[in-house]
Design a binder for these strands. Structure first.
Lengths: 255, 255
DNA sequence: GCCTAGGTCCCGTAT
DNA sequence: ATACGGGGCCTAGGC
């Protein structure tokens, strides 16, 4: 990995360093006193203060204040850069084309600049996502309930959107399964209710609705009961284990 | 502003530097080859690669890969740190207490470390928010329509939630106003419909529903028409100007 | 290209 | 403390 840095560069030195880093698409860090203007979907202005600017090789931009997880100003990947002096300040402009958004960062002092060409091929694996839970339920339908048989997944229901799993229970009743990776709230219940209602109207038959989630919030339980919907607790960990065990089998076997 | 950095430190030197920075609550940057484990609401593992670690004075943590706007792993403000050697690797543990989440970062090589105590009192101002739009509509009700008179704002409607503005038109009909700063979608229409329906049931009178937003999405227009609801285009910029002009006047004059 | 749904969302605000 | 909605959300997947 090649990298370089400067301590307390002049604005001219910093400008040259930054232009070099941007043109070579290296990761760039700038620490200094700056002011930031943003104009695009919304507009904002950040007065002078000491911050960290991060520019990545794909054109992502973040301006970080000393505190707070989120950048105060930013630009997503694909931004285009222009560096120049304006009123004696070092100006870095990052432009996004669609939607058209412009971020202007003005430095009147730079304490530190750093650039590097990072190599990172490391695999990132998240153990359980909502889609994983769906796969797990399709792989092992009894997680929903004994005798449950999936008929379709990600089925469109017109205005209502997409339901996660449609199946039938051991009695042959239609069952709509709504999956949540996080604790299910009122919104999930209402969403399920829309699907169930739509299906009842379409088919004219009895339709059951089941929320599958790690837990259901207390405030959603009343609504669930009032709408005669059901809840089945399934932990992400269980799904992860099912997926690990079921590797190699194809989804198409089940739907 | 005081700041310091090291180039190509040994792991021992890096450990001392990092511990010093964390204990003094300085902003810390580490560039090096690392591996990351996360366990909490979900779980993840990131194999070895070259990345940027940012730790802020409030305990925010971000691990950034060479590309992508978002950090691959992170911890929100308030995290607690522990630094030690494990299997010859420099291990930085960031723990969040609620919910309990642990982020472990292992470095086998450090290219660059930097720390600084940033001072930033600069004011950040966003020109228009959804609440600003509400204030603007209360300040200048004709933005909704000629003769519109606000009666209440943020009014609770039981299970339905809070409606943005309740008012009456020049004919004395009740009007529910639903404000969106962004293009209004199907969800906004359904939300408005819930409020209108609830109010109709409560009052037994005719109730109109109006969505105020910069624009309405195409796919929501059919639903809007079918439910006999209305749309009024209002730009954030217009709201911003109304607010600027209306400064000094109090909200309580209007509601 | 636009749109929809999910996120370890984060974050403010109100309860 | 916890629930709820918004975000310049960002990001991935469909069409």
């Amino acid at each position: 990995m090649s990298h370089q840095s400067l301590e307390e560069p002049s604005l001219e030195e910093a400008k040259a360093f930054i232009q070099e880093a941007l043109s070579r698409r290296r990761m760039l860090l700038v620490v200094g006193n700056c002011m930031v203007d943003y104009e695009g979907r919304a507009s904002s202005k950040l007065d002078w203060g000491e911050r960290l600017l991060v520019v990545k090789s794909d054109g992502s931009v973040m301006v970080h204040r000393p505190t707070g997880y989120e950048p105060v100003n930013w630009q997503p990947p694909g931004s285009i850069f222009h560096v120049e002096f304006e009123d004696g300040k070092l100006k870095i402009r990052a432009t996004r084309l669609q939607p058209k958004e412009v971020l202007n960062i003005f430095f009147d002092r730079v304490y530190h600049v750093f650039s590097a060409e990072l190599r990172d091929e490391g695999e990132f694996s998240m153990y359980v996502t909502e889609m994983d839970m769906q796969k797990a339920l399709l792989t092992m339908p009894e997680l929903v309930e004994e005798g449950f048989q999936p008929l379709a997944a990600e089925k469109e229901l017109g205005e209502s959107g997409f339901l996660d799993i449609l199946g039938q229970d051991s009695q042959g009743n239609l069952v709509v399964v709504e999956i949540k990776r996080n604790p299910a709230g009122r919104e999930a219940v209402l969403q399920l209710e829309r699907y169930v209602k739509t299906l009842r109207e379409k088919t004219g038959k009895q339709v059951r609705g089941v929320i599958v989630a790690p837990e259901i919030r207390r405030e959603a339980q009343g609504l669930l009961a009032a709408l005669k919907l059901e809840f089945r607790q399934v932990s992400p960990r269980r799904c992860y284990e099912v997926l690990k065990a079921g590797k190699g089998r194809k989804l198409s076997e089940f739907i």
